[in-house]
Design a protein around this nucleic acid. Structure first.
Lengths: 208, 208
DNA sequence: CAAAAGAACGAACGATCGTGCTATTTTCGT
DNA sequence: ACGAAAATAGCACGATCGTTCGTTCTTTTG
């Protein structure tokens, strides 16, 4: 009998390997991820693991891809149920904070951004593309909020996206080093203050 | 004849090694710093380099210490010529931004924070202590600004320090991935908007 | 200038790294 | 159930890792 469905064994064990690889990379970083340790963690031979990716770099790229998919599934997609604009932005931030709490030892994608920002090669390119893509998503949602009149006319979505992303970096940093709870309070308050200062009619700052 | 002064040869070559180690760690991260590569870079033998530190971990700790000293010399000490409060805070931020521009491939201390925040051991402790110490400095200077009446009474220095630190993390992130110039513009504007929203009488947000 | 002290070298260690190969086992269509 | 095909294991390779040890060169001291 053949109870297995489409994915087949190859894709299934590949997913299994990537699960373990993702967990390992969370602790050791993408650059600290070794095939030997991974194989032992999965319970396979080195060559068995290796054969699924063909090179260490391909494995690392696959981990990055898997991480991105998880991030989008946990942070972006749920927020799509909210109407475009401020509500969706709030949903994204909430889910993003939840994502950071779920991985207290650090987010693989962010760690990779820090590891590869100064080098060149496929890993750098992948990381840069991921970060740029996510930033674009943020900018688009903020743009919708401006179009809706939920944020002041003339507010620069690019600038606001930078500030929001910075807050999440700060939360990630503080949560890992000083504890999540206090950092979360700071981040939420800062986010609300940020929105307040970009509200229509109110607030200050921005272009002179 | 003995023209050499106090430091002696030992301390001198130790400094030389740390110079190269710091530069290497900037590219490869503290965890990617290997004694062999370092020795080749300095022009010494592996064992010669090794003898100066006794272990790789001690070398890494020494690099962290050297990085901290450079950071304080370039960012903190020059700002001490400014009067306590907002002026000194502005000087710190300016110098900090200059520090980030000077190391476009990434700051060793920040990279180390990202590398070791999820582990345990002496390196984690050192990184955590450094970050906590610097945060305390920020909080103190912001506290002076509040005492001076330059920031609104009741403003939480801890919270403001979180936001400012987050902005610098955002600048560091964006500068490395998307280019310094645009990121610098965002960071400066965000910093000024942040100060504006915490000014006495004006602004909004904060405690109800 | 000789003797003591310090610094750097060179070789070697066991371990692990990523990556090829060749068997062996497992899966799957027929 | 059997044979083709895919998946995994086993082994070996050169390289590099951190570390140790004994030797050699350089500096400082009496």
């Amino acid at each position: 009998m053949n109870a297995s469905i489409y994915p087949g064994k190859r894709a299934a064990t590949r997913e299994l390997i990537l699960d373990h690889a993702y967990a390992l990379a969370r602790r050791e970083g993408l650059e600290g991820l070794s095939i030997g340790a991974l194989a032992q963690d999965v319970g396979m031979s080195k060559s068995g693991v290796f054969a699924h990716f063909g090179s260490r770099e391909e494995l690392q790229l696959a981990v990055l891809q898997a991480g991105q998919q998880r991030f989008l599934e946990q942070v972006k997609f749920p927020a799509l149920s909210q109407p475009r604009g401020l509500a969706r932005l709030r949903a994204i931030i909430g889910a993003w904070i939840g994502w950071i709490r779920a991985y207290p030892s650090g987010c693989v994608l962010l760690a990779a951004a820090s590891e590869y920002d100064g080098r060149e090669g496929p890993l750098h390119d992948k990381v840069a593309q991921q970060q740029a893509g996510w930033r674009r998503e943020l900018v688009r949602t903020i743009g919708h909020a401006v179009e809706n009149g939920e944020l002041r006319q003339g507010a620069e979505p690019t600038r606001i996206a930078f500030e929001i992303h910075a807050l999440m970096l700060g939360l990630h940093h503080d949560a890992a080093l000083f504890g999540f709870d206090e950092a979360q309070g700071h981040a939420w308050a800062a986010f609300e203050r940020l929105l307040a200062s970009y509200r229509p009619q109110g607030g200050q700052g921005g272009a002179p």
